[in-house]
Nucleic acid binder design. Structure first.
Lengths: 222, 222
DNA sequence: GATCTATTTTGCAGTCACTTAAAAATTAGT
DNA sequence: ACTAATTTTTAAGTGACTGCAAAATAGATC
């Protein structure tokens, strides 16, 4: 019972709708393509589209357990002697080196990125995914360490690691929107990531301390 | 010419619409009150409602520069010898002691909180406001320290402080949703905040380090 | 007070995402 | 081929939001 005809057709239909929708969105913009048009092009009824995708946004940014559970998995699979932060750092730098795009930037995907940044409902969806990702990571940490329900540390740590990742990815996105390819950004990106993770590692307790005297100049943080 | 009749009426109309909308939403739920009904109750046309508020969500959660700019102002107004983190911590604990609700929980406002948590579009709006708050804080930090455009530290620090605040406020919200008043939560909340800020201060570099001896995990490292 | 102008409010027609329910088509099992 | 389960379609709505022109209102001028 490898896979019935029914299931295969479902899979294919869903994929076809998603592909066609993505193509139309990239070609003409998210807002100026209607769901009815996607349905027409994919040769199904509008209701079939909504059968597979709960919202129009899902046509482009599908809620996938794989993406949302990435950080949680890294936490669970980290090696002995490895801290949570170290595990995420290792995986992120590894993704950068191998060119894997699991952290949100594709090679040549700047049309994709631009559309997401300029369409409010899509940006909102990304925020939602980020939140889910951090929540799952917090749960994984709590379970792994066996912390009590009143302990906020897992949530705080997860949120902070997520925050660092968002800042670093945002840096890459900004440069991609300015026209650069991921290839030319990667080296700087690596350094920025090291710095951001470093900041997290040693704490930001003293960051931005105002000079106590009168030296109110362009001070450099420690 | 302190204020013309025209401007006074505008202000009053806007306030009346907002108040009536909030009352209806609290009484019957955000989704089961239509904008048409708000308009009818406030004795204006639907178009007038949309004249004052861009979206239905704005009727409840108005985008206010005061709320979104809070963290940025704290950064700019921090005292000499005070770090960014220390300034936010001081203000947060001060708000907690004086009962000021500028961080998002009102006394007796649990109906409000519950509605936001259970209505997806309102939760999305809160995320949006959080993002704006952190972006403005990052800009304030960057300007205050005179950092270059390639320096991610202000954004990272702002995002991390925002993350800690969200975790702590989330803790309070969860207990309020369970039926407790802010009064009975405050002492614990203070301690949780101290711990969260402490985590940020000294860094999370070693957090969750797996014991090097034996593998007690469920998963397998790839 | 009458008049003219700028601003605000309203009415109206429309678009589009999304919902619900039932009929029709397709696939699976016997 | 027949029946049951599943998927797709059709049909009819709901409700947020938009664009535009007409009507009402406020401010300024004479």
């Amino acid at each position: 019972m490898s896979e019935g005809l029914r299931e295969r057709k479902k899979r294919e239909t869903r994929q076809r709708i998603s592909d066609i929708a993505t193509g139309l969105f990239l070609a003409r913009g998210f807002d100026s393509v209607t769901v009815a048009e996607v349905a027409r092009t994919a040769d199904v009824s509008v209701n079939t589209v909504f059968n597979y995708f709960a919202t129009k946004e899902d046509l482009l940014l599908d809620r996938s357990p794989e993406v949302e559970g990435l950080l949680a998995r890294i936490v669970r699979e980290r090696g002995p002697g490895e801290s949570v932060l170290a595990a995420v750092r290792r995986d992120f730098l590894d993704a950068l080196e191998t060119g894997h795009y699991r952290y949100g930037f594709h090679e040549g995907g700047d049309g994709f990125v631009r559309m997401i940044e300029t369409t409010p409902s899509l940006a909102a969806r990304v925020r939602e995914m980020n939140e889910a990702r951090e929540r799952l990571m917090a749960e994984a940490i709590a379970e792994d360490l066996g912390t009590g329900p009143g302990d906020l540390a897992p949530a705080v740590v997860a949120a902070q690691i997520g925050a660092a990742l968002r800042a670093v990815v945002g840096y890459a996105v900004r440069r991609m929107l300015a026209g650069e390819g991921i290839g030319s950004i990667a080296p700087d990106l690596r350094e920025q990531a090291e710095r951001a993770f470093g900041l997290l590692e040693s704490g930001i307790g003293g960051y931005g301390t105002r000079p106590a005297g009168r030296d109110r100049g362009h001070g450099h943080p420690s």
